[in-house]
Amino acid sequence: MLTTTLASVAVMGCLGLFLGLVIGFFAKLFKVASDSRGDLVTELLPGANCGGCAKAGCSDFAKSVVSGENPPGKCPVSSAEQVNAIARALGIDAGGGFKKRAVVRCGGDIHQVARRVNYNGVLDCVSAGLIAGGPKGCRYGCVGMGSCAAVCPFGAIEIVNNLAIVHPEICVGCGKCAAACPRGVIELVPIESTVHVYCNSPEKGPEKRKNCKVSCLGCRKCEKAFPEKFKVEGFLAHVRYDAEVLPTAGDVEAVKCPTGALLTASRHKEIETNDPEFSNE
């Protein structure tokens, strides 16, 4: 009995030793010299692998930072301290990058948009868009089936009443949602901006009005009040995100948008998430 046990132990031990030696030998033989700085940077990065830097992932980005291809600031997710930490560690310039946020430029939730058709099929924005242009009356607004929410690596997008809403405190501006949206409703805007035009339809005012209660009619009220902050192209107002001074909540009140397409992000979120009665009026 004892001999059997001993024999087994011996055999297993020898086998383990032998295989360990083989692994060790090959590890030495095929050793690839790696830059330890890359590993360091990878550790300092958030590790979300979101792809917002246009690299394959955080370690890929780290390599490009070490090689000097990208400045650390190109990472959209890292905070300023994190970026500075990487810059200090490598002794290079942090490099600037606009910090951005995604915003869904559409306010047409289930209560405001004329749902002209009943749709039956795959619950995915792109697939729905292929069938008779999707379920909502408006062909330019948010489809509301959550293709953006599905790709968001941070869970920052929520679908409320068939409308995608970005939670700005979670969003890091990686841009995956903007790429996924078939309608191009999602835009990346500077992080400081708080006021947006929640409409994306280039159609004429009356046409839009037929489809949606909260569309931008292109009345130019905002442009007239603050020409340096807003511009109207065609029949659709835009916030001048490249302006020196971005519009504020006070400006929104001053403009008195007739349809309520011009809103602060917080008010928009409040309307959509907390107060369905308001939007139902």
Binding site: G121, V122, D124, V126, S127, L130, I131
Partner: peptide
């Protein structure tokens, strides 16, 4: 909805 998947 197999056809819709294929279209997509």
């Amino acid at each position: 909805p197999l056809v819709q998947h294929n279209r997509r």
